[in-house]
Amino acid sequence: MAMPVSYYLRTSKMPHIWCAGCGHGIVLGAVLRAIDSLGLDKDQVCVVSGIGCASRAPGYLDFNTLHTTHGRAIAFATGIKMVKPEMKVIVLTGDGDAAAIGGNHLIHAARRNIGIATVCFNNSIYGMTNGQYSPMTPTGSYASTAPYGNIEEPFDLCDLVYAAGASYVARGSAYHAILLWKLIAKAIATDGFSFVEAITQCPTYYGRRNKMRSAVEMLKWQKEHGVTVAGAAKMPAEDLAGKFRIGELGARTRPEYTRRYAAIIDAAQRGEGGERDA
C-alpha cells in the first residue's frame, strides 16, 4: 500500500539542509519510494552514511540511522549486517565519500558480496566543503581545487564495483527519478552487494563553476545525456561521448557473505572444520 514519502521522514527535522535545487532530495525521494514499494518494516531498516552532503540524509529518515566517519559507512554497515543479517542495511553516500576516501571499503564489500545496498549520490563534487573536484568529476570541469580544469579521469564507478564482484549494479539520475526509484528498489531487494550510482546535480558549486546556472538546466543536461542501456547499444561510439548509460548495468547471482558465514557457524557448532594451521 503506497505510503506518502513523509511516512518515512522524521518530519520534525525538515526542511532538510540541502541547497535549493540540489538533486539529493530527488534521489532521497527515490530511495524512500523504493523502500515503500518493497513494504519494508521500518524497524528492520538500517541506513548508514559517511560524511558529506548526501551523508546527512539518514538524519531525516525514520529508520535505524547511523552517520559515521568519512568514507567508512560501508565498513560500519558490514559490522551491522554481520551481526543482524536479517536487517535491510542501506548505505547512502556521496561520490567523494564512496569513491575517494571510501574506495577500499566499497570494492571489498562488493568482492565479499555482503548484503548491503549502496546508493551513491554522484554530483561530481565535494559540496559540503564548498566545491572541490572528486574522483567522479569529468575531465576539464572546474572546481575550487581545479582552477585550471580537472586533469584527472573519473572512475566508471559502476564498472569498478561490478568488476569487484557486486551482485547488482545500476545507474540512474535525478531527472530519471522514476527509473531511479525502480533501480534502487531492485538493489535493496538484491540478496548480495548492490550498488546504484545516482547522477545528481549540485547547482551551488558544480553548476556555478561549470556554466550551468540552475538546477533546471542541470536536470535538462541529465535528460539529454542519459541514454538507456538498450539505446546506447544501438548508438555509434562517437555519439556516446559525454553521455552516461542509465538502467541496470550488471546483475549476477553469487552467494551472499553472511549466508556463507552462517554455514561456517553451523559447521563449527557441529564440530566440523576449524583446522589449526598445519
Binding site: L9, M14, G23, I26, G29, A30, W181
Partner: peptide, 19 residues
C-alpha cells in the same frame, strides 16, 4: 512534480481511482 521535487514538498493526490 512530486518525484522531481528535491524538497519532498509536493504530494499529488491520486485521481478518482483509489489506491
Amino acid at each position: 512534480c512530486e518525484v522531481l521535487c528535491p524538497d519532498l514538498a509536493i504530494v499529488v493526490t491520486p485521481a478518482a481511482r483509489k489506491g
